[in-house]
Design a binder for these strands. Sequence first.
DNA 1: TGACGACTTCTACAGATGTAGTATCTTCAG
DNA 2: CTGAAGATACTACATCTGTAGAAGTCGTCA
Lengths: 128, 128
Amino acid sequence: MAQRKRKDLQLSEAEWKVMHAVWECAPATARDVLDTLGDETEWAYTTVKTMMTRLVDKGALKTKMRGNTSVYVPALTKNHARTSALRGLLDRAFGGTMGSMMHFLVEEEKLTAKERREILRRLSEDQA
Amino acid sequence: MAQRKRKDLQLSEAEWKVMHAVWECAPATARDVLDTLGDETEWAYTTVKTMMTRLVDKGALKTKMRGNTSVYVPALTKNHARTSALRGLLDRAFGGTMGSMMHFLVEEEKLTAKERREILRRLSEDQA
DNA sequence: TGACGACTTCTACAGATGTAGTATCTTCAG
DNA sequence: CTGAAGATACTACATCTGTAGAAGTCGTCA
């Protein structure tokens, strides 16, 4: 099994959904997460609870009891998770370099004209 | 289980390795792939063979017998696979929009100065 | 012709992921 | 005090992923 350095945790699709909900309404209970997800999923309460328990194991969430209820907060920021996920994609699919992904984006027309302008604007103003 | 439209197949980490090898030396036998991978992995021959069989099932590879040996060719291009993978990352981690990923890249300093210059160059020359 | 090597198909098994039921416990409203 | 509502921990099970052994088949070389 590819054993990437601990700390570089990869989230599964379902886990991302839960994390998004937690980032949105932390500190959150499983019930809060279920409500936040709304009709985005049809999950049973226990499904969410199970995933949150696993996310605690993975180190993506922290939990604390309040009365008889577990309250969860993220153990990493959304940006941190995004960075890991991106890193994973880069490693798997783009030979590990940002450059080759950018090349792909630019050459393969994955960007709309609007996105291009936006990026140009940001990059150049930031660089000045 | 999140049931994305078939066709939008997501490759696992090990599968990416195999696919990279096949793209590199197609048409390729399992042996070719194993050789191409070199010391990148310690896989047994049958491990590679199993994965290639699964990739055929998934529709990522096509196979044909030559004598008593299976010869494989990719059933999708690297760019196609990259697009799917990127799409997956976008959906999972960036709310499904390219824009928010680019925002992340630009604002979060994920790019080196060199990469920025490179992107600027490509974008602007392409846009002219 | 028989052993060796290369290939194939089958089977296996552990860990991760998706999804949820069940049994139990806590609390609050009557 | 009792029961419903809601929380928890445990258990379960199918599928996917990573990894590979076992057994059978075929061609070749001595």
